[in-house]
Design a protein around this nucleic acid. Structure first.
Lengths: 241, 241
DNA sequence: CGTGGATTTGAATCACCTCAAAGGTCGTGG
DNA sequence: CCACGACCTTTGAGGTGATTCAAATCCACG
């Protein structure tokens, strides 16, 4: 269970991890800073904060000069179109940095909402920018560059493929993310609803549900509550090739 | 004609513009650098280079530690999937910076090919990073952040909309880009083929063509060769709302 | 234990795709 | 300067995969 559980570790809650002990230190904003530089971080930036399920972390349009590191849990980012319809632009899970697209103009370009109880670390960038620390800016740059690359991979999966391929490549992208963060590649929680997945992929809920059913009938995956198990990874990979 | 012509300005060819005289200086990598800092730029970075139509600027996988500023003309970025099929991930026009997603790992993540005769300025980042100029990194960061925002806007247009909405929002995004760069918002060249547009949007060529025809019949747009004229901008905007 | 949201399944419709073929346009070479 | 070929664009007809609408479970949470 612990492998697939993204909820809060009780110990972590009581003794907040400092940047220099954090599991994300190699990929997070302060990476490579010497301890005295880390001190420049806003004090509140140096410890994570607990959010309940379905908490709004930030709202579209609000002033935002922070990014958020996801220590545990997951979020969805979405906009609301002129008809009031929600459109999910991204999901982010443990190990991701959220809010990068807001740095250009200091305003959040989406809503960000937790999908489950989550622990996020808000990194306030004001002081960091004032100090013009090249390390920090370089780290943010690399994070954004990597995100740009990931985005266009995701984009490829959405365009020009069947509904099945969309769903499968969605599952595989989560699988890859999990592996990259030291978790199981073949068994993990899907914290979002079918409706969220459908919204994100531009499909009808019914279509997503039918595809899950078909994949289960072919014994490529199985589900138990929100836990997804991938039985045949390479077969799934062949489906999207 | 000059308003909608993105081809090379003869004067520009003979007397290359230096960074401090460049039309892109406010949005490009060296923005905000003092003249002595600009000198740190590789000499070859300080003048644009002419590419013929259909030139490959860089190839997927190759080592790349530069970005390219588009002084005139346009490019498409694409990957080749395992079946050898081209998939276009982005178009870039005058005023854009190309290659940002490669900075994370120093390798080009896509092919980049000119759609017409184009003038690009290769900005070699090696020396800049070595000097750790916070201004430069800040500029790149803002560029990437903005791109992330634009990408997700584009993504919204692709997901969950009809083919007509995809095409219309594609046209509107180019229109907006043109306006942001001081060109006409309602009359401009579409440098890419219908096939390219279809590929980019995940539609069949025939579908794209039919939609152009329909929009012309409704007198919302008109075309003359590759020049597109938007007759009723607000009507188009209503179509995607 | 009950209620509301989430998921699943079925049937009918429709938007887009595929296949096919006829114009157009552009570049090239005679 | 014109003619040819290659490619791009347009139009038509028919097929299909995904959507919509409807309704029956299933599950989480109070």
């Amino acid at each position: 269970m612990s492998q697939v559980n993204n909820t809060v570790d009780e110990m972590t809650m009581r003794t907040p991890i400092q940047c220099n002990q954090c599991s994300m230190q190699s990929i997070c904003v302060p990476a490579g800073l010497i301890p005295s530089d880390v001190e420049i971080l806003d004090k509140s930036s140096r410890e994570p904060h607990l959010y309940n399920k379905r908490s709004v972390v930030f709202s579209e349009g609000e002033a935002l000069n922070s990014v958020f590191a996801i220590k545990s849990g997951s979020v969805k980012c979405y906009t609301i179109d002129s008809n009031g319809k929600q459109q999910i632009t991204s999901f982010h899970m443990v190990g991701d940095i959220v809010g990068l697209e807001s740095l250009a103009n200091g305003n959040a370009s989406t809503y960000c909402e937790t999908l489950e109880t989550s622990m996020l670390c808000e990194i306030k960038l004001g002081k960091l920018f004032a100090q013009e620390l090249p390390k920090v800016e370089g780290n943010l740059m690399r994070l954004m560059s990597r995100r740009l690359g990931n985005n266009s991979k995701h984009y490829l999966n959405i365009v020009n493929t069947s509904a099945e391929q969309k769903v499968v490549s969605f599952l595989l992208s989560i699988s890859t993310h999990m592996q990259q963060h030291g978790l199981s590649r073949s068994e993990f929680r899907l914290p979002m609803t079918r409706t969220d997945i459908a919204n994100y992929l531009g499909l009808a809920v019914e279509t997503v549900s039918r595809i899950f059913t078909a994949l289960k009938e072919q014994e490529l995956i199985q589900t138990k509550q929100s836990i997804l198990t991938i039985n045949d990874l390479s077969a799934l990979e062949r489906r999207v090739a």
